[in-house]
Design a protein around this nucleic acid. Structure first.
Length: 270
DNA sequence: CGCCAGGGGAGCT
DNA sequence: AGCTCCCCTGGC
């Protein structure tokens, strides 16, 4: 167990922000996080966070995963105070961090996300992990399943994942897995590329369009200049930014602003 | 039962 | 760039 005091961090907000589908709030108010074949529980009260790992694992993995080395005050200071909408959104989701998630997992997750609800996306991913991922046992005895490697999914029939509730998205995932396994799209290479080049490379995958590529760039590759535009964001742009979103002002970290907006819109739904 | 929308994308023109 | 299909589920 390690105890940390962290500002601009809210596990509850991150969990609800829709960038991560394998994180959940447990009935006792603590959070469970599955990432990189690891299992973590996290309790938070104000700025006090208790991670269920040792200091070394925190330093070498979770600190980077939650992007805790970055100072998000920098992004908030750049906010245009006259932009009431964005200022309000950032105030509501000020504890959000852009996670550094696994590349392959994000590709699959956002392939599944198209024309889909968050609750169902979570179910789909859980189904895939339980059916094709390796079974693991956490330090506290909890059984969980790792996210299946491309090799495990590449050998499936194109329609096999319909059994995991993917519907017509099944063939997107299987074909993408095959492209990765064959080396047509090299993930190690994608990791080294700039935002533009990485995006271009991801677009070669069947089923990956501009929105999905941007989500992968933002949530896996940490290219904060990626600004995924989905139906929700499009509506916001139409209502609040008729003359265009001020990309110039937020150059290099538009993705952080996108998350504030997205979270705020999700929040208002309820 | 029908209708429609839910964090799109492919394949056309 | 804009259009038409694609065609899975869950909610109403």
């Amino acid at each position: 167990m390690v105890e940390k005091y962290i500002t601009d961090f809210s596990i509850a907000q991150i969990c609800r922000s829709g960038q991560c589908f394998r994180m959940r709030e447990r009935s006792d108010g603590s959070y469970e996080v599955l990432a990189d074949n690891r299992y973590l529980t996290l309790e938070q009260e104000g700025e006090r966070c208790v991670f269920s790992c040792d200091e070394q694992e925190f330093e070498t993995f979770w600190k980077g995963y939650f992007d805790l080395e970055a100072d998000y005050r920098f992004y908030k200071e750049k906010l245009n105070p006259r932009d009431i909408y964005l200022t309000t959104a950032a105030a509501c989701g000020g504890g959000i961090r852009i996670l550094r998630q696994d590349l392959w997992e994000m590709i699959v997750s956002f392939l599944i996300s198209q024309q889909n609800h968050i609750a169902r996306i979570r179910r789909c991913i859980r189904n895939i992990c339980e059916n094709y991922g390796e079974r693991r046992v956490g330090k506290d005895g909890t059984v969980y399943y790792a996210f299946p490697a491309p090799e495990a999914l590449a050998q499936l029939d194109e329609d096999a994942l319909k059994a995991c509730n993917l519907g017509y998205r099944s063939k997107y995932v299987v074909r993408a897995a095959r492209s990765v396994v064959s080396g047509e799209v090299c993930l190690e290479k994608v990791r080294m590329l700039s935002y533009k080049k990485a995006r271009e490379e991801l677009l070669k995958l069947f089923g990956v369009g501009e929105k999905v590529a941007d989500c992968v760039c933002l949530f896996a590759l940490h290219h904060l200049e990626a600004f995924p535009v989905d139906t929700h964001i499009r509506q916001v742009l139409e209502v609040h930014y008729k003359r265009g979103f001020p990309h110039r002002r937020y150059k290099g970290f538009q993705g952080v602003m996108q998350q504030y907006i997205f979270y705020y819109e999700l929040l208002k739904e309820k």
